[in-house]
Design a protein around this nucleic acid. Structure first.
Lengths: 331, 331
DNA sequence: GTGAAAGCGCTAACAG
DNA sequence: CTGTTAGCGCTTTCAC
């Protein structure tokens, strides 16, 4: 392995200046056809790849956006991440994923590591409670999109939906369908608990169950927790006839446990999930669940950030994309 | 938003040189306690974060490792990615995930985008068929770890296992258990097909089924494909009594479809998956599957790359970590 | 359309 | 232990 090639090497080989090499690669239109082709030929022959580190430093543009995800990432954010990745790639930006795993002071350390790279923008997914992190982020002065929730006071831009209203909608739906003894199986993260709150709120409004029991499980939620959770709920509340699970994985566990116990779904027990993961429609019975349009979140977040970075203004920097209740057989 | 702070600003505020600021942050031991604390105080007050782009350029060390994953990533690599992320973070490196989404010439474009960032090392997960990409990677002269497979001629280092031997082991297991009409439900990626090949090879050795039918489905595999796949297999081969699925998601679909059809698992139909995803043990019946130690792959890959980068030699740069057949109720 | 000069912010290398 | 100098490789800026 010899020293890596630089624009100067390519320039020498092509008989042009370094600047022309740079332009031939980044803005081919601004270079004469002859030189463009000569440079292209040398680049191809040598396998030269521009050093984006140097370019970023000089132009203060990383052409890179960071997404910061909770320490423990499951399949939930996959759709959003995929859309984000794709939408950014199409615009010539790369996605960098920051994913926790940084020890006890995780949140601060993670954000610090991300900021060191000077991304052009940051997409947050429901973390950042530390005031320290908030301050650092604000003083970095880069575009930020918060997602997956509606905050009273967003840091900057936001593409989300109301977790409370999801809880309310599911509650109203189950009530309308005639179920009478609801319960909740709920991850212990903030957003899941917001959904539970909405559910209970609506239950009160409807004059329904005064207090639906809530079984909390540690995130990330798993199928096993769904099974155990239903078991626990039934031990304490044998008359339960409807369960709202704050993730599809939990709901799958509930379906399996119900089946094992000989509980007929949806006749004896209604099950509602959240996420509409790709398996939800194919379960037996098919899972009624709440769909979040992760693709739209990802695409919109990408657009917002790129618009900002490239100096265009963002029309509606606080966007509620809502959700939809997908009625299937399980409830 | 004002201009971002630099080491010089901090230096001025702390009454020291820029170099001392750099050292106080990166190698605190080499700075007197007094100055270290003075710098620390200013850093805290201002929220200063070192610009890693500039540092990387100067030191030709990105403190960053890239992982390149197939265009369509499911839950399969999650365990590995998590371990990789964590192991790298502990050693002061960041993980950058490259994930496709780059249009038709995906592979080349993705690798190109990754190489532009000049990572200290690259972890590959079974892509890179293009000779173009191989050449570029080799000429970049950075440590590379291939994973999730054993290649005849690795580019550099390798942490994997034999997909053929997995197929063989599953085949032998099903044969030993007394099943007689095997079939395969197989993703259309290279590694899955390698497993199918191993399966068929072993079937021949055992003088067993001359040609087990193979149903191919496009990756990434889903539960729905598992259901449809089993249906298709039974239409064509009604006597099938054992199915090896090249992913747990497929296997879950097969379990559900079997149940819907009133086929008793494992009595009438054996089902074996691959991956030992977190739900496998909690299914009903619990899924017999092949476990790949993703954590070990991730940790080892991180270690190999960091050792190389930091000038230590890697003892066993080609490592077969094997796999294990987890016997549960479904087969 | 092309090139020369300068400098992005940091740290290697050296001197003290 | 601390500071000075120089330069990583690119692109901005300006001149032609």
């Amino acid at each position: 392995m010899v020293k890596a090639l630089t624009v100067h090497d390519i320039a020498r080989l092509a008989g042009v200046s370094a600047m022309t090499v740079s332009r031939a690669i980044n803005q081919p239109d601004r270079v004469s056809v002859a030189k463009r082709e000569r440079v292209g030929e040398v680049v191809r022959r040598t396998g030269f790849v521009l050093n984006a580190t140097a370019g970023s430093l000089r132009s203060s543009r990383a052409r890179m956006v960071a997404a910061v995800l909770p320490t423990l990432t499951g399949p939930v954010f996959q759709e959003m991440v995929r859309a984000l990745n794709q939408a950014l790639a199409e615009r010539g930006y790369q996605l960098m994923i920051g994913q926790g795993g940084y020890g006890p002071d995780g949140e601060d350390e993670l954000l610090h590591a991300v900021l060191r790279r000077r991304p052009d923008g940051i997409v947050l997914t429901g973390i950042l409670r530390s005031p320290n992190s908030r301050r650092r982020l604000l003083s970095a002065g880069i575009p930020v999109v918060e997602t997956w929730d509606l905050t009273a006071s967003p840091l900057d831009m936001l593409v989300g939906f109301s977790n409370e209203r999801i809880g309310e909608a599911v509650c109203a739906y189950l009530h309308r369908k005639g179920y009478r003894v609801p319960a909740l199986l709920c991850g212990d993260d903030e957003r899941a608990q917001r959904r539970a709150k909405g559910f209970k709120h609506m239950a009160q409004l409807l004059g329904w169950a005064v207090s639906a029991p809530v079984h909390l499980v540690p995130a990330p939620t798993t199928l096993a927790q769904g099974r155990a959770g239903l078991a626990a709920l039934f031990d304490a509340h044998p008359l339960t006839d409807a369960v709202f699970c704050t993730s599809d994985m939990l709901a799958l566990g509930v379906l399996i446990e119900a089946q094992t116990r000989g509980l007929a779904v949806p006749d004896q027990l209604a099950v509602v999930g959240l996420g509409d993961l790709d398996f939800a429609a194919s379960l037996q019975p098919a899972l009624t669940t709440v769909r979040i349009n992760g693709t739209r979140i990802g695409q919109t977040a990408a657009q917002y950030i790129v618009d900002r970075v490239e100096g265009r203004s963002v029309d509606q920097p606080i966007l509620d994309i809502g959700f939809s209740l997908v009625e299937r057989a399980s409830a």
